[in-house]
């Protein structure tokens, strides 16, 4: 009996402890909410991937992936995006230790690598359209431009976001809200890199297979 009471009281104390801890801090709630957004974004990309996979062979007599894709270009794009993901990770380390110079440096490197990626991608699109492989040529090309262009659009949004965050950082310093937004930005940037892994595998590498 005595033991039972004791166990019960310990149990209650634990419950009380948890409830007294209150709701999770805003940093964790914001991060989790943004994580949910990222997952829904990935679900949207899965629909684009599905339509690409269905239409990949429907080139309507026009140019096929094997004729259009340049693997060296895709490899360089991959390297730029992977390195920018790494520098974004280093930036979040600098943010955690509240190191302003390191943060700005990481952001600049991330921005430049992302811009280099975007430059290569836009040039690739231009070259393809110049040889007549525009989105209206075939279902395959419509699906290709939608999928890869949507990823490129996300990169553009990320770059604009990064610039805005640097402005906020210079105006407001490491306030909690700025740190939260920077944290969400790094999640976004890493998620873009994950989607690019799928793009270069499914679109480029599998596209040039005989």
């Amino acid at each position: 009996m005595n033991v039972l009471v004791e166990v019960e009281s310990v149990h209650q104390a634990e419950l009380l402890d948890v409830s007294e801890a209150g709701p999770a801090p805003k940093r964790i709630i914001a991060g989790f909410g943004f994580w949910i957004f990222l997952l829904s974004d990935i679900v949207m990309f899965s629909a684009l991937f599905a339509s690409y996979a269905v239409l990949a062979k429907a080139s309507a007599g026009g140019p096929t992936g094997a004729q259009l894709f340049d693997l060296r270009n895709a490899g360089m794009e991959t390297a730029f995006l992977l390195l920018s993901s790494y520098s974004c990770g280093l930036m979040s380390l600098a943010i955690n230790s509240r190191h302003q110079l390191g943060t700005v440096f990481g952001a600049v490197v991330t921005f430049l690598l992302g811009a280099a990626f975007l430059n290569l991608e836009l040039r690739e699109f231009q070259d393809m359209i110049a040889v007549g492989a525009s989105p209206q040529r075939s279902a395959f090309l419509s699906a290709f431009f939608t999928l890869v262009g949507c990823h490129g659009l996300h990169v553009v949004v990320g770059l604009v976001w990064l610039v805005l965050m640097m402005v906020q950082l210079s105006l407001r310093g490491f306030q909690d809200i700025v740190v939260r937004r920077l944290h969400c930005f790094s999640l976004f940037w890493h998620a873009l890199d994950i989607i690019w892994v799928l793009i270069f595998t499914i679109v480029y590498l599998m596209g040039v297979l005989p």
Binding site: F32, L39, S40, I42, V43, S46, A47, A50, S51, A53
Partner: peptide
């Protein structure tokens, strides 16, 4: 949350194909 996302992605991809 990730597991649920992966489930939806799998259903969309495999289902469409």
């Amino acid at each position: 949350a990730l597991a649920f996302g992966v489930l939806i992605v799998f259903l969309v991809l495999a289902g469409s194909l």
